[in-house]
Design a protein around this nucleic acid. Structure first.
Lengths: 200, 200
DNA sequence: TTTTAAATACCGACCGGTCGGTCTGTATTT
DNA sequence: AAATACAGACCGACCGGTCGGTATTTAAAA
């Protein structure tokens, strides 16, 4: 195997291992030594690939956010109306619970780190803002097509939509087996959709 | 001043100081030495009042949860219908943003700690479960009084209601000045309420 | 009322251990 | 020979927690 490929593999192993450890124990409680041990990699290798623990975290965030954004990319394509498209996305967002099995608590870690470290924060705002804008656009489109009531504020509605998703995510982290999260998510979003429906 | 009172004052100083520090830097990143320094208290005093750093955190959680539950205690009393009562609670929940000024990021800390340490988790489930049950009861009452559609699942709706509140709280921590959180919360809850309304 | 012993509140030097990060070297590839 | 990819001993800073000692209060005994 080429030297270069070997390096990439080591890097990915480090990324995978640290994702698992950060999810389980949190950023601070996870030591670099622990990551190296679990990944069967020396400390020298670690610092060859990442300048610091922080930087590894940032890289982890990058790849994770990309994968989540990618999952949403194709959602709602086949829907004919906006409410239908939103429902499809809710169903998919529920699917996230399965797809990213065990990789969810890391979201909490991203959040806390972002709320405290500007460098992390800046990496997180962009995709978050994109989501918000995207949803606001969908709500506006729903109003335009007559599905939603004109009195609905698209920006506030977008906040509410993301809140439901995030709030349920949080509850799911807290109580992994507390409910059928996929079904609850879908019905929750449905409730908000119904709340926006045209009151003719 | 009596010795006893002096002790209580020291304890409270420790509690206040650690609340601020945990909120700002997180549990792990806050050292006992730092807490003591900020509180102008010796380490001996610290360990006289608390058996460990963990125990201080638990005590902090106790008082914080009590104060939040207390804030909600009297909400929705003067309302005549369930939707009105819910709206009043939403307005009040929005007021939390002001009332617990700066003391919100600690919620994130409670959440992460709870998701990882059983001792913390158990302290948090009870009030959380109480909230959930309370809301489910309100939704059921709303159905009974004819305000809400019978097809609404009270338990799922309660999850959704709390999700909106929690999700917006999370967003508010992330972007303190990102929106008029009180207004957004109220309109968000209103959207869900409208979604539950009787479809006669 | 005075004496005194126990209890409470506090002090801060100190301890074993862990942490993130460095540095010197070696093996392999280019 | 230069660059890449690793190996792991090592370092100083710092961490949570301990411990022997002191000052003040309290309450019972004399």
């Amino acid at each position: 195997m080429a030297n270069h490929e070997r390096g990439i593999e080591t890097r990915n192993t480090l990324l995978d291992t640290s994702l698992a450890l950060f999810s389980q124990n949190g950023y601070d409680a996870t030591s670099v030594a622990q990551i190296c041990q679990d990944a069967q990699v020396s400390k020298g290798a670690f610092y060859h690939h990442f300048a610091s623990k922080q930087e590894l975290f940032l890289a982890l965030m990058d790849t994770w956010l990309d994968s989540v954004v990618g999952l949403f990319q194709t959602a709602g394509d086949s829907a004919e109306t906006i409410p239908e498209a939103l429902d499809q996305m809710a169903a998919l967002s529920g699917g996230l619970f399965d797809a990213l099995e065990g990789g969810f608590p890391i979201l909490l870690e991203f959040w806390t780190q972002a709320s405290r470290h500007p460098a992390v924060w800046e990496k997180a705002v962009a995709p978050y803002q994109r989501f918000l804008d995207y949803f606001a656009g969908m709500v506006q489109a729903g109003i335009d097509e007559g599905s939603f009531d004109p009195s609905v504020d698209p920006v506030k509605a977008a906040r509410t939509l993301t809140s439901v998703a995030m709030g349920l995510l949080l509850q799911a982290i807290f109580e992994p087996d507390g409910a059928q999260w996929q079904a609850v998510t879908r019905s929750g979003i449905q409730l908000v959709i119904d709340g926006m429906r045209s009151k003719k």
